[in-house]
Amino acid sequence: MTTFAYGRVSTAEQTTENQRLELEQAGYTVDYWFQDVGVSGKCPASERAGFQELMARIRKGETLVVTKLDRLGRDAVDVLSTVHRLAGMGVKVVVLQLGDTDLTSPAGKLMLTMLSAVAEMERGSLIERTQAGLERAKAEGKRLGRKPKTTEEQREQIKARARAGESPSVLSREFGVSRATIIGLRDGV
């Protein structure tokens, strides 16, 4: 059985050597080592060059070993997605931090189910925080969304000229906005 290992560190000044040594001290003979150096943990696993290379090479029946769960993704949702993808490929996934548990085994699947529940709660909390922030900003009178390309005075000019029959295409070019914006202003949308 072939063993793949993956390490990640956030800065170029750091090295993945400690992670590799930890895996070897745990009794793993690493056949293929992949790493990402200078890659933040905020970056999803699927966007990391070293991890992408690993995913392109690993096959059914092989094992992926990492020292910590956060090496498999940026958050619970990303980790869960990564482990499900690997399990679907028939790859055994071992995380030393979790007591050398294979996440594709029944006990590992139980851990993933709990992780999934945490991820769902995390998503719900994020949505709640975002909505609360938007409501607070509105209550403070802040304008949400992109800054308009035109001033209020220009919008009034556009409305008047469009309602007077001037072509939306001409107004669009003159004011640097889309025809849809001109038509929307004309029609009061």
Results as ranks from 00 to 15, higher is better:
Arg48Glu: 04
Arg123Lys: 09
Gly133Val: 01
Ser172Lys: 08
Gln19Asn: 11
Val37Pro: 02
Gly61Cys: 07
Thr2Pro: 09
Gly27Tyr: 06
Val30Arg: 04
Arg136Ala: 15
Ser167Met: 05
Ala26Cys: 03
Ile182His: 13
Ser178Asp: 09
Thr181Ser: 12
Arg71Met: 09
Arg146Pro: 06
Ser172Glu: 07
Ser125Asn: 13
Gly73Ala: 06
Gln19Thr: 10
Ala45Pro: 01
Gly188Pro: 05
Gln35Ile: 01
Leu64Trp: 01
Arg74Val: 01
Asp70Phe: 10
Leu64His: 05
Arg161Tyr: 04
Glu128Phe: 11
Asp78Lys: 06
Ile182Lys: 08
Ser116Arg: 06
Tyr6Gly: 07
Leu96Gln: 08
Gln35Gly: 06
Ala49His: 15
Ser125Ile: 07
Leu171Asp: 08
Asp187Ser: 05
Pro106Glu: 07
Gln52Pro: 00
Ile182Thr: 09
Leu112Lys: 04
Cys43Ala: 13
Glu62Gln: 15
Glu152Ala: 14
Lys42Glu: 15
Gly88Ser: 06
Pro106Ile: 07
Leu112Arg: 04
Ile127Gly: 05
Glu120Val: 01
Thr29Pro: 00
Leu112Val: 10
Thr82Ser: 11
Lys138His: 06
Gln154Gly: 01
Gly88Asp: 12
Ala87Asp: 12
Thr151Arg: 11
Lys138Arg: 15
Ser167Asn: 14
Lys159His: 11
Gly133Gln: 02
Ala119Phe: 10
Ile158His: 04
Lys68Asp: 14
Ser81Asn: 13
Gln35Tyr: 00
Glu153Trp: 10
Val37Arg: 14
Glu153His: 10
Thr29Leu: 08
Gln97Pro: 11
Met89Asn: 11
Tyr28Met: 02
Thr113Arg: 08
Ala87Cys: 13
Arg57Gly: 12
Ser169Glu: 12
Arg163Thr: 13
Ile182Asp: 14
